[in-house]
Amino acid sequence: MTANSANTPASVFRLSLLIRVTLLSLYVALTVPLPFLAQVTDAPVPPMLLWMGIGFGFVALYAVLTERVILDEQGIQVSYPSWVPGFFRKGWSLPWSEVKELKPRTTGQGGIVYYFLSRDGKAYLLPVRVARFTQMVQQVQAKTGIDTTDVSTLAQPWMYMILLGCTLLLLLIDGWTISTALAMGKF
Rank of each mutant, 00 (worst) to 15 (best):
A131F: 04
L102C: 07
W51A: 13
W176K: 10
L168E: 04
V99A: 10
V64G: 04
L168S: 11
V12R: 13
A123K: 14
S179K: 05
Q39P: 04
L126C: 12
V137A: 10
T106K: 15
I19E: 05
V21A: 11
I112M: 06
V84W: 09
T31G: 00
G57W: 11
L172A: 13
V99D: 11
V130R: 01
L102W: 10
C166R: 01
Y114V: 01
E101D: 15
V113N: 10
T31Y: 04
E101P: 08
P85F: 02
P47L: 11
R14M: 01
V32D: 03
I178K: 05
M52V: 15
F187L: 15
T107S: 08
L171K: 08
D120M: 07
F13Q: 03
D150N: 14
L23P: 03
T177H: 00
D174S: 12
P46F: 05
G121Q: 12
V32P: 03
Q77C: 15
T144N: 12
F88A: 09
I162C: 03
F133S: 03
L171V: 06
A142N: 06
P85S: 00
K90C: 01
P95E: 04
F133N: 00
T149E: 11
D174Q: 08
V32S: 10
M184E: 11
A60V: 14
L170F: 14
R119K: 15
V84G: 05
M136G: 02
G121C: 06
T66A: 11
F36Q: 12
A38D: 09
L172I: 11
T153N: 01
K122S: 14
R68H: 14
G55N: 05
E67H: 07
A43Q: 05
L15Y: 02
R20W: 04
A29K: 04
S152E: 09
